[in-house]
Each structure stands twice: as C-alpha cells, then as structure tokens.
C-alpha cells in the first residue's frame, strides 16, 4: 500500500493548513476555456491525446464559469467581446486566476486595428501572459504549471485581505 501503511496505526503528518489547501488547489485547477479564436484550437490540442492536460489535473473543462478556477482567455478579444469576457470573469467564484494566452490577448499583437482591445489587462487582472501566436501547447502547459506554483505559494488569507496578526511584542528587557 501507500505511505499510510508505513505509519503506525494512528500516524499523522504535520503541515500548515495553507500548505495543505494549496496542494489540493494546485492539483485540480479547473480551467474555463474561453476559446475565442486560433488559440482556442491549440487549447483543444492541449486537451487532446498528445499533450493531455489531464496529467496536470486540469482536464475538467467546464463551460460554466461557476465551477472554474482559472480562465484561459485564448484568442483575440475585440471590444464587442470584451463585455462578454468580463461578464464571465465576474461569474467565476473566488479565488480565480487568468491566463492571457497568445500575444493578441496579452497586447493586441499583430492586430493593430480599431476593433481589437490592445491587451485584456485593460479590463481584467491577468496572472500569466503567454507569448506566441498561437503558443505551442507545451507552452500552455508551462503556463499552467506556473499558475500551479502561484497557487501553491499563495496563503489563504491573501484571498480575503485579512492582515497578518501583529506579532506579540514582549515588553521589558
């Protein structure tokens, strides 16, 4: 059997709650596939058999925002679409992360034109900017791993803006 068999009958591990929650969170990042254009096809390829996003616990592509942790904005966001993206982002439960996949999502890229938003950070907080037009699927996996690192190292209180307790000062030396 596994680790538990090696332990004595009522074995235990010590850890912090944050580490445990972070570990649980990072290994089941459910993406919200916001496939808008070309990058959406590469996102499909990541879900496909060759790159297999399931290895990272993210194969559960949920098309409803209510069940998602990370939004993959894959493709050119136009002004008309930006309202939709924002609406979907707002519906995702906290804590949530955003990957801007591809240059046209990150900066407008090759689309210097009247209808394209020059970077989704004009209206969304973005965690990872992913280069490439479109990025190769391996690159998206890399972004996912970076997000996992970020999730792992984030303390739970940071999501809720609770300040750290003041350390108790011992008076009188």
């Amino acid at each position: 059997m596994g680790l538990e068999a090696k332990l004595m009958s009522d074995g235990f591990l010590t850890t912090t709650i944050d580490a445990l929650v972070g570990w649980a969170r990072e290994s089941s990042v459910w993406p919200m596939p916001m496939g808008i254009s070309c990058c959406g096809i590469e996102m499909m390829a990541v879900a496909g058999p060759k790159y297999d996003i399931a290895r990272f616990g993210s194969e559960v592509m949920r098309f409803t925002p209510r069940q998602c942790d990370v939004m993959l904005v894959a493709g050119t966001v136009t002004y008309k679409m930006s309202h939709v993206v924002k609406k979907i982002y707002d519906q995702m439960p906290d804590p949530k992360w955003v990957i801007a996949m591809g240059v046209c999502t990150s900066t407008g890229g090759m689309y210097r034109s009247y209808s394209v938003v020059q970077g989704i950070d004009h209206f969304l907080p973005v965690d990872i900017y992913l280069a490439g037009c479109p990025p190769r699927p391996d690159n998206l996996l890399n972004a996912l791993m970076l997000i996992q690192d970020k999730i792992k190292n984030t303390k739970a209180r940071e999501f809720q803006n609770i300040p750290l307790l003041e350390p108790v000062k011992v008076n009188g030396n």
């Binding site: 808008i36 493709g75 136009t78 008309k80 679409m81 210097r112 034109s113 009247y114 209808s115 394209v116």
Partner: peptide, 11 residues
C-alpha cells in the same frame, strides 16, 4: 456576428 471582427480588410 462580429464578436471576432478584427478589421482585416482595414489592416
């Protein structure tokens, strides 16, 4: 339509 109108013809 138009949610992915990128203005190709203008570009």
């Amino acid at each position: 339509l138009g949610y992915l109108h990128r203005g190709y013809e203008k570009m």
